[in-house]
């Protein structure tokens, strides 16, 4: 591949030809992934900017949205299959992105109290409790939501 004088962006370099070379290697004549036969099917070539383009499709195609209200199409919704997105607070949000809830100006401590607590915001006052709960000492494992 010629890299000199190639001013294309990385995305533009992923031409269909180049991708064919890359992706076809991993798929046999029946469209099955050679590493995960029966499990992964090659994605249909849609718009290059669609998430669907690169993501392998699970051979058990979901016909419904699995109760997810993420407003994405079935093929683009990755929510239903992951346990981590069954949490009511994280329901429907895409993978691999960091979210931070929006802080409001509320519940402000008196200034003197604020200095003692290390913050003037009650909502940011999280005293250290020597663990989220005492499950570790009782021998229980993860999944405890007790505060």
């Amino acid at each position: 591949m010629e890299y000199n004088n190639d001013n294309r962006t990385p995305l533009d370099r992923l031409t269909d030809d180049f991708l064919s070379e890359l992706l076809d290697d991993n798929f046999d004549d029946h469209g099955e992934n050679v590493f995960y036969p029966g499990n992964v099917r090659r994605a249909q070539r849609k718009n290059k900017n669609s998430r669907e383009y690169y993501r392998p499709v699970n051979s058990e195609v979901q016909t419904e949205n699995d109760g997810c209200d993420c407003h994405n199409s079935v093929s683009e919704c990755g929510c239903g299959s992951c346990e981590s997105f069954k949490s009511p607070h994280l329901h429907g949000v895409p993978l691999a992105m960091v979210y931070s809830p929006h802080q409001e100006w509320e519940n402000i401590y008196d200034a003197e109290v604020g200095l003692e607590r290390g913050t003037i915001f009650k909502c940011l006052d999280f005293p250290f409790m020597n663990a989220a709960c005492d499950c570790a000492f009782n021998g229980r494992s993860q999944g405890c939501s007790r505060r």
């Binding site: 802080q103 100006w105 200034a111 003197e112 604020g114 200095l115 913050t119 003037i120 915001f121």
Partner: peptide, 18 residues
């Protein structure tokens, strides 16, 4: 002075985001 300057800095950090 320490109490008030802490409050001022807390507010300043909040205002940076809002």
């Amino acid at each position: 002075i320490q109490v008030f300057s802490f409050a001022v800095y807390e507010a300043a950090l909040y205002l940076d985001g809002h």
